[in-house]
Design a protein around this nucleic acid. Structure first.
Lengths: 108, 108
DNA sequence: TTTGTTGTTCGCAAAATAACGAACAATTCT
DNA sequence: AGAATTGTTCGTTATTTTGCGAACAACAAA
């Protein structure tokens, strides 16, 4: 009861989900996914929060691996991290897969 | 820049994602999705955390609408909330849909 | 060199999360 | 009535999250 840990997949899925657990970060990801990529300023323009806060949200998304940023003086270009994005999609799809549920409503 | 809010869909998706943002809650959801439903004790048995903490995680999943619990003295039966579960699946699927991205790697 | 532009980082504060043991509530069993 | 079983709730502690303004850093332009 003390050392039962979680599987690596559960940890990874939770990590991605956590990163997506704020409307601002959802908005950022949608924006980036649609634009392929863009600059910090473009993202900030679209959000109702200060640039400091935007920067923090971007950091969290980067730490979670969902996006990546490259300095392009004097700007910073952000893009979706396609590789991890695909991993996330796969994990979520698997999670919501039509389940091994049988007939009845509830177990006896 | 001050009153730009998030869309209802973004808020809902973020709400679901946030609820899924912890490995224990992922484990609970996977367990319930596989079993159709079961008692509190069955869930607690599978997790490496105290019953008080399990109860809290279950509350959060219930508040997010992903599960539902019914008292069945002296036990409590928990099930996936199929309706909201389907909504979540739809929202996540839409989110990860193959994107409106065109040719090039990055915008100019 | 001075000025601008563009983002990040640094405090800081308030709120939310995560976790636990102990106490409590509800119901069944003896 | 008294004991046992099953979860929830309470009180507490530690950590994380969210948010902002102000200060800072890096480079381009004047």
């Amino acid at each position: 009861m003390t050392t039962k840990e979680y599987t690596a997949e559960q940890e990874r899925l939770a990590r991605f989900a956590k990163a997506m657990g704020h409307p601002a970060r959802i908005a950022i990801l949608e924006f980036l996914a649609a634009q392929e990529c863009c600059f910090f300023g473009d993202i900030h323009e679209v959000l109702p929060i200060s640039k400091a806060t935007v920067s923090q949200h971007l950091s969290e998304l980067r730490d979670a691996g969902l996006i990546q940023g490259t300095i392009e003086p004097p700007k910073v270009r952000y893009c979706i991290n396609r590789e991890n994005w695909a991993t996330a999609r796969r994990l979520f799809a698997g999670f919501f897969k039509e389940n091994n549920r049988e007939k009845g409503e509830c177990c006896p």
